[in-house]
Design a protein around this nucleic acid. Sequence first.
DNA 1: CTAATTTGACCCTT
DNA 2: AAGGGTCAAATTAG
Length: 359
Amino acid sequence: MDDALSQISEAFRLAGELMGELQATQNGPAYIAARCHGIVHAYNRAIRMLQHYGVGDVAAAAAPRELDAGPRDILRLCSTDEAGASQFLGETPAHLAHRKEPFHMPAGVFGARVAPQHTMCAGAGVAGTSGGPMRRLPSSRSPPAVQPRQGRRRRESGKREMVLVPAQRTGNTELPPDDGYTWRKYGQKDILGSRYPRSYYRCTHKNYYGCDAKKKVQRLDDDTFMYEVTYCGDHSCLTSITPLLMLPTASTTTSAANSPTAATGSGLPTRDLPMELAERTHSAALSMPVKLDISWMPASFQGHLAGSGTGMGSIANMKMNVSTAPRDTNFPTLDLGDVMFNFGSSMDHIFSSYDRHNK
DNA sequence: CTAATTTGACCCTT
DNA sequence: AAGGGTCAAATTAG
């Protein structure tokens, strides 16, 4: 349960970040949209986890697997205009020349638990999902095992995808933004001709779910605020948001009629759908009805919610607008925008209270 | 205790 | 042989 709440808290944190960026910068709509996706992804993960705990059906029944899009897919859909994407990234011709593969919208705009340690060595303490060790003294290492290791393979035949990711625009700008997944660093290497070392990450849940997703993070020499992130393999773990971005049933009706895959259930990713449909898909994904039990929240904040104009009671019925489904008048709804942008700081307080309450 | 990072060594590909 | 990718012991944080 804590992990789900943590995800919700993370979503609010990201929303807060976006708020700051909206005020401080003039980011393009593509960037803002991508950030919004990141926020939604966090919510979706929470939903997924809540489903796992059997807390209501939430959007379970409303989440068929026909339309399946990972974060990169989403961003690809957002960036059919390469020039626009480049502009959003502040990408220079040099960057474009640097690219080895077709450009995709940066998956990294989601902000990562990834903490490229080569950037952290001096600043320490902000790394990943755990504190991370301090640099070890050379003398502390015992002689390496001389046992030969066999069967090690490389050059996986899985798909590889390279994206350019801007460093975070707020907070520690030394870090590439979250991409929605949790990664565990398993290596770092100095690369010939590169000023910065390359970091290697694999999915945190590799051991639990056999998830083989990996990524390499390389800071660019000519633009230290850009990272080249190469993804290898797909997420198959629970934390993957891939299954979280599906059409709610109520919203699928229209899409299903148009989708060549919905009838067959072959699970064609949204990236293979027409842009218009894909947009509807993501719009629907953004419109998940969410019911949150806030009975544990401080009474004062419950009152705050109740007084927010949404008429919330002890149960926060946060129902994000579902355009294609009739609004349920039996319980009040809360617009996702309200949730994300009006309650950001307040939610921090709530969840910190919750944490204290449960310790 | 568990999980994460660091980092030198090992192994594979070119 | 060189360079890149991975392993795993050591270490640290929560």
